[in-house]
Design a protein around this nucleic acid. Structure first.
Lengths: 216, 216
DNA sequence: ACAAGAAGTGAACCACGGTTCAGACCTTGC
DNA sequence: GCAAGGTCTGAACCGTGGTTCACTTCTTGT
């Protein structure tokens, strides 16, 4: 034999694959899953349509990878706040919802693609899977909150699903139509307040401070 | 001329169109939007693929009609409970959520298709529109609740969106995997309790009865 | 009964976009 | 420089499923 893969080649290959995923993510954020054809994505990454298949077995596989990368980042960030953040369970819940929403606003196109944009079967399945992960994170913090007496008795799984759906639904419309920063901030405040109500923060009889209420 | 549309013909035509919509709905409930090809739907309605185009300009138009009919019924039922039902705003909200969820469980396949199943652009757009209607109904009852002092101050639109998303998300998984009646009833109870918390029922300081709490 | 014209059929048509592949071009070890 | 074996290209291929259309079958007024 007279040819063997050299580190330099491996690196070029990996870089190309990386660029493909990155550019595909950008295209999806821009035009949605439906508009992200193999040709368009390849062009964005500066390669031919055929070369895409050097890195991924199918367009679906690429789409799934794009989704996993982007959604995985969000799961990680949310987990970091909810699980390893500072403060009690209620404080971390509020912080988690706010961080999640804030990040969504910073990358509207991508957030919309991840949350709501029409997608094919495989991506929808992935969406379901990641929603399950969001739910698991929320459920954990709710469970901790009830155990600590900060939240009233409830099924943490139901509340977690509700939080996931509620946050997503509240964000979908604002993400679709651009709005001002002030409006976004107001929305964030309302959203976190809603999330706390949803979990029942501030309604536990023994712990509730007599005159204190959660509105500012 | 020697042929003119007679009432009998009109009636047959209308009946055929009706049967088409009905059967298409059944097919969609069974196999989802993706599996509901023109051929399959036509066969279910006892007509040829070509005849579908006698009644609808395109497959998309038929899909939209199917969605509107089914979703429209739900909007009407929810509106009847939330707007014209008995009891105060909080009672009607609880009742509305429960009725909505109960109806979803009675027609799982259809409910799943309306709420979450992968669908093409046009149907997704329709979904967005109907979610807006659900939101409007919830927002109205929340607004009434805050005005009556039953609910704390809040942005009714945000809470309404949250309720819509929360109910949908909580239902998606249970709708996909069949479960027992007992589990379904328990879920309903948790779901309505969560909805009331989400709107802040029972947290208003002046009105709250000292010892009373909303857990049973 | 018959002509006019609509409803109904289903096989052929076609657009679309993912996928393939024969050839061009590179990289490597000798 | 050269052979071996890789990467890269983009035009051609192809499966899918919505849509069309020539034709058949019915319905209606005379």
């Amino acid at each position: 034999m007279a040819y063997r893969e050299t580190p330099a080649v491996r690196m070029r290959l990996d870089a190309a694959r990386e660029r493909l995923v990155t550019e595909a993510t950008a295209v999806v954020a821009e035009v949605g899953w439906a508009g992200a054809s193999v040709g368009a994505v390849a062009a964005a990454a500066g390669m031919s349509a055929g070369s895409v298949y050097q890195h991924f077995a199918s367009k679906t596989a690429l789409a799934v990878e794009v989704f996993r990368r982007a959604a995985g980042r969000e799961v990680e960030v949310l987990g970091a706040v909810l699980r390893d953040g500072a403060g009690d369970a209620v404080a971390r819940l509020a912080c988690g919802v706010e961080v999640f929403a804030r990040r969504a606003f910073e990358r509207r196109g991508l957030a919309y693609a991840l949350l709501a944009a029409p997608a094919d079967e495989a991506v929808c399945a992935e969406r379901l899977e990641f929603r399950r992960r969001y739910r698991a994170l929320f459920a954990e913090v709710v469970r901790e909150g009830t155990a600590a007496g900060l939240l009233p008795p409830q099924d943490p799984e139901v509340t977690a699903a509700a939080l996931t759906g509620a946050v997503g639904e509240v964000l979908v419309d604002p993400l679709a139509v651009p709005s001002g920063d002030a409006a976004a901030e107001a929305l964030l405040a309302e959203l976190t307040a809603m999330a706390l109500r949803c979990a029942g923060a501030g309604t536990v009889k023994g712990t509730a401070r007599p005159g204190g209420n959660d509105d500012r």
